[in-house]
Design a protein around this nucleic acid. Structure first.
Length: 744
DNA sequence: AGAGGCTGTCATGCA
DNA sequence: CATGCATGACAGCCT
């Protein structure tokens, strides 16, 4: 009853804490009275065999380490593991927060520019947070508030994770509601991880029609182009174009502008639709890992230049002044440039220029170079001209619209992949593989649902622990309650201990000579039988190798008790025989040699006392030799047991470390996917903004610049320059060589 | 009967 | 050098 009460309390507490942490209020009384099945399981005790160990969880320590698998204290171990797992699982909900906090360190407080500055329309700098870029919640807000986008280029790297702290109350409520709904459907918490939510939303974006999409993108539901799917040149992942809201926000920041309705379509014609071929998951995993490593370097080298090497000052407060030495454009400043309507701007583009953005039905992503310079590589260049102008704008671009090479990451980062990542993560985090998970699921489908935790520990699935956790090895047919009582009494009595001596041992003293004392007393006293108990078990067969140390006395009773008739016959003889058998070889030898003290003393006494003891008796040389051998063997026996225990602990720790590392790996991978997704979106936005700004530039005569002749480029001081394209191309080539040289 | 696990023991090295 | 500990290897026993 005590354990039952503890179990109930523990289960309810955990459940309540869990729910409260995610914002769900729990009225325990209500549940108690309503007798919902899961809670009834908690109250009355689960019937699943997996939860048997919970019953003898009498000492609930939270260390979770150093538990010998053969120890009956595995219950504690399992409980601790389960609690730890649950606690660990709690942080999953908050992971994005920590990430964002770390990334926002890069934010330059001086880098932002008031939205009133029209030029800052490059909008890389408007005051709204980058969080607008990513995250379903943020996506909603983006359309709602039309804040445009945000942050200077230095912050581009910070776009990946959502700022949980920025979640509005509505968002949180929505999350809670969704979670509660999905909990009923059996969805795990991971579903509500940010990546999952984003995944879902992305899936929605891809699969749903416009009507459904309005649910998540209320602000842009009317814009059909918003449903255009863009495929990232880097990852190949298709995703919905988000420019409409962004661009409209830009145009709001430019008061003199009226937004031509056709512009967005021009800018945002989809490159590809999200068609992915079936793929082998494992292969993709390997590909993903290798590719990501490569791309990590690429991103680090390329994006960091443009994202983080930008001058700390406001790049746009001084922007648009032409480079003084620019041979052709020395008189042209963006400050002086008049901003015309976008439609006009684009109509004034050269035919090559127009061909791309206008052709919304084209399979080529506008602004994404289809020649060798992919968006990924060009984005890293500080040369915005090489960056954002489509190949059609370049001199070479018009030659052949070579089909865009599929990005090796394409398809790997799609939603299915993300799901797999999360699945794997789930499996790892829960401590068992998916097969086991499904098996467990089946079992708990037919049994108790909430008691699954006891088997989350991978080690709990091993057979050795199955026999050690309870008395089930020999009396497995006994009911759970019976076994629990048996094992509980067993554990309480500590009936087994380590000594080959049949004498009553002072265990404290016996263990005093052993290094691993606390654990050793629990786990390594394997052969010791209390004489009082031995008297009840006169027919134990294995004297030297007692493998029954895990069994409860009752189990031993039932297993080893002879028929009553034989027991009645000469029980004293049998008892003596048993005791005789129970003695170890050394004890027999000691008895044969008439050693006047116990083997336990021989083994466990400190050297001084041992020598003192020897000096008290007149012992022959043979006796002394035997005594020393007994002492040596006894100590070595304990040492061997310690050694084995240590070895086992090491293995278990390594196993745990592997799990942790796998969990970290999956998490990092997930974060990376998120980051890449966000980065991709930012690239698109910067790209569109480039076109936006460039299209509105006018020379002294009020005419637009030809994209084939001019390009925007970042200068070292943070300003944005309009330079001739030939110059820009040269610089771009130089930029491309640098990393190669570094690699050499 | 054989495999595999558990235990004790020995040899050896180290402190 | 004696002692204790750690550990690999081996054998015996058990399931």
């Amino acid at each position: 009853m005590l354990s039952l009460k503890k179990y109930l309390t523990e289960g309810l507490l955990q459940f309540t804490i869990l729910l409260s942490l995610i914002g769900v209020r729990v009225d325990v009384d209500t549940y108690l009275t309503s007798q919902l099945p899961p809670l009834r399981e908690i109250i009355l005790g689960p019937s699943s065999a997996y939860t048997q160990t919970q019953f003898h969880n009498l000492r609930n320590t939270l260390d979770g380490y150093g538990i010998h698998p053969k120890s009956i204290d595995l219950d504690n171990y399992f409980t601790a593991r389960r609690l730890l797992n649950q606690v660990r699982a709690l942080d999953r909900f908050q992971v994005p927060t920590t990430e964002v906090n770390a990334w926002l360190v890069h934010r330059d407080p001086e880098g932002s520019v008031s939205g009133s500055q029209p030029s800052s329309g490059l909008a890389l700098e408007s005051s709204s947070g980058l969080q607008d870029v990513t995250g379903p919640d943020n996506g909603v807000r983006e359309s709602e508030t039309e804040q445009g986008f945000s942050e200077d280029l230095e912050d581009l790297g910070a776009v990946a994770p959502p700022v949980s702290g920025d979640l509005t109350k509505e968002d949180i409520d929505l999350i809670d509601i969704l979670w509660r709904q999905d909990i009923d459907l059996g969805a795990g918490r991971e579903i509500f991880d940010y990546s999952h939510r984003q995944k879902e939303q992305d899936v929605d974006k891809e699969l749903r029609d416009g009507a459904e999409q309005e649910d998540t993108w209320p602000g842009e539901g009317a814009e059909a182009l918003a449903r255009n799917l863009l495929v990232d040149g880097e990852t190949g992942e298709s995703f919905p174009a988000q420019f409409p809201a962004d661009i409209s926000s830009i145009t709001e920041a430019v008061p003199s502008e009226s937004e031509p309705p056709g512009l967005q379509n021009n800018l945002l014609s989809p490159l590809l639709t999200g068609t992915e071929s079936p793929f082998d998951l494992e292969q993709q995993w390997q590909d993903l890992m290798s590719i990501m490593e490569m791309q990590a370097m690429e991103v680090n080298t390329s994006t960091s230049e443009i994202l983080y090497n930008a001058p700390p000052g406001d790049p746009l407060s001084t922007n648009y002044s032409l480079a003084p030495n620019t041979p052709i454009n020395q008189n042209v400043s963006l400050h002086q440039a008049s901003l015309g309507g976008c439609s006009q701007d684009f109509s004034l583009f050269s035919p090559e220029v127009e061909s791309l953005p206008v052709a919304s039905s084209s399979t080529l992503l506008p602004l994404v170079p289809s020649n060798s310079t992919s968006l990924n590589s060009t984005f890293g260049s500080t040369n915005l001209a090489g960056l954002f102008f489509p190949p059609q704008l370049n001199g070479t671009a018009n030659d052949t619209a070579s089909p865009e090479l599929p990005d090796p990451l394409g398809g790997l980062l799609d939603e299915a992949m993300l799901d797999e990542i999360s699945l794997m993560d789930l499996a790892i985090e829960e401590g068992f593989n998916p097969v086991q998970a499904s098996q467990l699921e089946e079992e708990f489908d037919s049994d108790s649902g909430l008691s699954l935790d006891s088997s989350h520990s991978p080690s709990s699935l091993s057979s050795s622990e199955g026999s050690s956790s309870s008395s089930s090895s020999s009396s497995s047919s006994s009911s759970s309650s019976a076994s629990s009582s048996a094992s509980s009494s067993f554990s309480e009595e500590g009936a087994v201990g380590y000594s080959s001596d049949s004498e009553t041992l002072d265990l404290e003293e016996a263990e005093g000579a052993v290094g691993y004392q606390p654990e050793y007393s629990k786990f390594c006293r394997m052969s010791y039988q209390d004489p009082s108990q031995l008297s009840c078990l006169p027919y134990l067969e294995h004297v030297g190798h007692n493998h029954t140390y895990n069994m409860a006395p009752s189990a031993l009773d039932s297993a080893d008790l002879p028929p009553p008739s034989t027991l009645k016959k000469g029980s004293k003889e049998k008892q003596a025989d048993f005791l005789d058998k129970q003695m170890s070889r050394d004890e027999h030898r000691a008895r044969a040699m008439k050693i006047p003290f116990t083997n336990d003393k021989i083994i466990n006494l400190p050297v001084e006392e041992f020598n003192e003891l020897l000096s008290k008796y007149q012992l022959s040389e043979a006796q002394l030799s035997l005594i020393r051998d007994i002492r040596r063997r006894g100590k070595n026996k304990m040492a061997a047991q310690n050694c084995r225990k240590r070895k086992l602990d090491t293995i278990l720790n390594l196993e745990r470390d592997v799990e942790d590392l796998q969990r970290d790996k999956a998490r990092l991978l997930r974060e990376k996917v998120e980051f890449l997704r966000s980065l991709r979106q930012m690239k698109q936005k910067v790209q569109s903004l480039y076109q936006e700004v460039f299209g509105r530039l006018r020379d002294e005569n009020g005419r637009p610049y030809s994209p084939s002749q001019y390009a925007l480029q970042y200068a070292g001081d943070g300003s944005v320059l309009l330079i001739p394209r030939t110059l820009a191309d040269q610089q771009a080539r130089r930029q491309e060589r640098k990393p190669k040289d570094r690699r050499k």
